[in-house]
C-alpha cells in the first residue's frame, strides 16, 4: 500500500473536520445544529472516504442525509433538504435523542467549555439580569443522553476554555467520575469524547474525567495550549502532533467548500 501523503497547507477548520471524520463509523447516526460547518464537512468527508452508509441529521431543518453539494454560512435553513432522504420533526428528534440507544454521536459548541467537558451557551451571572446573555440552552441538553459527544470550538482562549462553566447547558462529566451517573445519565452514554479546538485536541482522563491534552496541531506547542487555556489540562509526558489532513481528504474538503467558508471560521 502506498504511504499516506499529508497536505502541507490547510486551515485549522480543515484539520478539525478531517480529525473528526476519522472517528465516525459506517452506519452510525449523528446530529449537528446551526453554525456547524465543521461537523457537516466531517460527516460528508466520512461518507466519501470510509463510511458511505453514515447517517446525519441537520438539527434545525431535521433533513436526513442532505446532499447539498457545498458548505453554506447558514446551516439552519431548509436548503439542507436538497437531496435529503427524509425529514423528521423536532419532536421526533427529541424522542430519538432521549433514547440512548439510537443516536450515536452529536457535535456541540458554546461560549464556555470546562475541564469536565461541560458546555454553557445560556448565560453568565444572575439569571434575572445576567452579566452575559448567550442565545440559550437550545438542543445542547442532548449531551446528557447521546452515546458520544464531540465538543468543538472556533477559538481557543482562556475565556472560552474555563475551569468551571457558570451554567451547564450541555452536561459533560459534570463534577467528576460519578457526575453523569449521579444525574441519571444512561450508562451507555459515554459523554464527551473530545474537545477539538483550532490548536489542539483534548480527550478525557479515564479516572478523573478531566480534560487531557491528546494532541497539538502542527505549528502549535504544548506551551501555547497551556497559556491559552483557562483550565489546567492533564499533560502527558509525550504529546503527539495531530495528524494533518491527507492530500485526498483536503481535496474533498476544498471541493465541498468552493466559497471557502472553513478558512473564515477559526
Amino acid at each position: 500500500m502506498a504511504e499516506t501523503k499529508h497536505a502541507s497547507e490547510y486551515c485549522p477548520a480543515e484539520l478539525m473536520a478531517a480529525f473528526l471524520s476519522r472517528d465516525l463509523k459506517d452506519e452510525e447516526l449523528g446530529v449537528f445544529g446551526a453554525f456547524s460547518q465543521i461537523p457537516w464537512a466531517a460527516c460528508q468527508l466520512a461518507r466519501a472516504s470510509h463510511a458511505p452508509g453514515l447517517w446525519f441529521i441537520c438539527g434545525p431543518s431535521a433533513a436526513i442525509n442532505s446532499k447539498l453539494p457545498k458548505l453554506m454560512w447558514s446551516v439552519s435553513d431548509n436548503r439542507m433538504h436538497l437531496g435529503a432522504e427524509g425529514r423528521i420533526t423536532l419532536d421526533g428528534v427529541m424522542d430519538m435523542q432521549g433514547n440512548p440507544t439510537f443516536i450515536d454521536f452529536g457535535f456541540y459548541g458554546g461560549f464556555q467549555i470546562d475541564k469536565f467537558g461541560n458546555l454553557n451557551i445560556a448565560y453568565i451571572g444572575d439569571q434575572k439580569q445576567p452579566k452575559f446573555r448567550g442565545p440559550g440552552t437550545v438542543g445542547t441538553m442532548a449531551t446528557a443522553w447521546l452515546n458520544r459527544v464531540y465538543l468543538f470550538t472556533h477559538g481557543h482562549t482562556p475565556r472560552l476554555l474555563v475551569d468551571k462553566v457558570d451554567f451547564i447547558s450541555g452536561p459533560g462529566f459534570i463534577d467528576g467520575p460519578k457526575g453523569r451517573e449521579n444525574a441519571g445519565s444512561p450508562a451507555r452514554s459515554e459523554g464527551p469524547r473530545y474537545i477539538v479546538t483550532p490548536i489542539c485536541v483534548f480527550d478525557f482522563d479515564e479516572e478523573t474525567k478531566q480534560a487531557r491534552l491528546k494532541s497539538v496541531h502542527p505549528g502549535h506547542s504544548v506551551e501555547e495550549v497551556k497559556s491559552r487555556t483557562g483550565f489546567k489540562p492533564i499533560i502527558p509526558s509525550k504529546v503527539p502532533e495531530t495528524e494533518p489532513p491527507t492530500v485526498e481528504e483536503l481535496a474533498f474538503l476544498r471541493a465541498f467548500d468552493p466559497d471557502r467558508i472553513l478558512p473564515q471560521l477559526c
Binding site: M94, G98, T137, A142, A144, W145, P171, G179, S185, P186
Partner: peptide, 29 residues
C-alpha cells in the same frame, strides 16, 4: 431548553397533566 419547551407544548396539545424528560436531565442546569 428545546426539549422542555417542546414537551410543555406537547402536554398542552395532548391534554395531559405533564410530560417527563429523560433520565439525565438532572445534569442540565
Amino acid at each position: 431548553d428545546e426539549m422542555g419547551l417542546m414537551r410543555g407544548l406537547k402536554a398542552s396539545a395532548a391534554g395531559v397533566a405533564f410530560f417527563p424528560l429523560p433520565d439525565g436531565f438532572l445534569g442540565v442546569d
